[in-house]
């Protein structure tokens, strides 16, 4: 009996020892990562001109900024206060609609371009390796360069207005969606494609009748997600003169028209939230019917 408990105890100490060693190894690894991170942060703070004193000084100003942009609304004169707050409402509304249209047209144009390009880059159905490589790099370029940089270039080439904004969003969208579309295609079931090929169908027929029915709902869902992102992006296109509400927002922030800032920001947030809710509902419906 005593012998038995001894072995059990020995086993327990052995286990404890192993556990301790494992935990120690893990802690040492974590500590090493932590030290590396601290070094990176220190280097970054130096290069990023982080000044904690400035931050502490700025912190109350951050609070007072939000107090400043809060409009004065008194219950007694609520109607006229709101009217004064949104004194430029028709203009802002039109600019907001312009912003939405910029996002819509840009998303649709970019999605169309990405749609036609994605078939050349998916590893499982694209025929030619060289074409696939070239298209892939081109898409990568389009999505890595931020849309607002494209907008800067296009504003210079085409002139001020919403058109360069649309083109910038379209190019960036083509890059992002082309990649996502290609990934969807790489995950499809290839049996329908083989079946069609065995009947002698050409490449376009194979895509139309074997690939598209499998991917349409996923594609649409990605397009809707991208539209959400592009609505946010389109709100700042005006910063570089590429149309939409951004120009008004930039002006009111720079010139300290406090109540205008909050009025425009509130309109933007409301629009973005509504668009998010609508597209989320649409996407659930799309993917829901696709799964059944």
């Amino acid at each position: 009996m005593a012998e038995l408990t001894d072995t059990a105890q020995q086993r327990a100490t052995g286990l404890l020892r192993d556990y301790g060693a494992a935990v120690r190894a893990k802690r040492i690894r974590a500590a090493m990562y932590f030290v590396a991170l601290v070094i990176c942060v220190l280097a970054a703070s130096w290069s990023g001109e982080v000044d904690l004193r400035k931050f502490v000084e700025g912190l109350p100003r951050f609070g007072s900024y939000f107090r400043d942009i809060t409009p004065t609304l008194r219950p007694a004169t609520l109607g006229s206060d709101i009217a004064e707050w949104y004194w430029n409402f028709p203009v802002w509304l039109e600019l907001l609609l312009e912003t939405l249209l910029v996002a819509y047209v840009g998303t649709l144009a970019g999605a169309t371009l990405g749609f036609f390009l994605c078939f050349f880059t998916s590893a499982n159905i694209s025929g030619n390796r060289t074409v696939s490589f070239v298209v892939k790099r081109a898409l990568e370029f389009c999505r890595t360069v931020p849309d607002i940089v494209f907008a800067l270039l296009f504003v210079f080439a085409i002139g001020l207005g919403p058109v360069p904004g649309v083109l910038a969003i379209a190019i960036h969208t083509a890059g992002a969606l082309g990649k996502q579309f290609a990934e969807v295609i790489e995950n499809i079931d290839l049996k329908p494609v083989e079946g069609l090929r065995s009947t002698g169908a050409n490449w376009v027929d194979q895509i139309q009748f074997a690939v598209l029915p499998q991917v349409t709902s996923n594609f649409a869902s990605y397009v809707l997600l991208r539209f959400e992102i592009n609505v946010r992006g389109a709100t700042v296109m005006g910063f570089v003169g590429a149309g939409g509400i951004g120009k008004e927002l930039l002006g009111s922030i720079r010139q300290f028209y406090y109540s205008d800032v909050s009025a425009i920001l509130l309109m933007i947030i409301a629009t973005v939230v509504v668009i998010d809710l609508l597209t989320e509902r649409l996407r659930h419906r799309l993917l829901g019917t696709a799964k059944v």
Binding site: S47, G48, E49, V50, D51, K54, F55, G58, R61, F62, Y65, I148, R232, G233, T235, V236, F239, L249, L250, I253, R254, F256, L265, I268, I269
Partner: peptide, 19 residues
């Protein structure tokens, strides 16, 4: 709200620069 808008707001709070 886009990052660029936040950047503009924080420029008003802590001044121009990377901070």
């Amino acid at each position: 709200i886009d990052t660029l808008v936040w950047a503009l707001i924080f420029i008003n709070v802590v001044g121009l620069g990377p901070f």
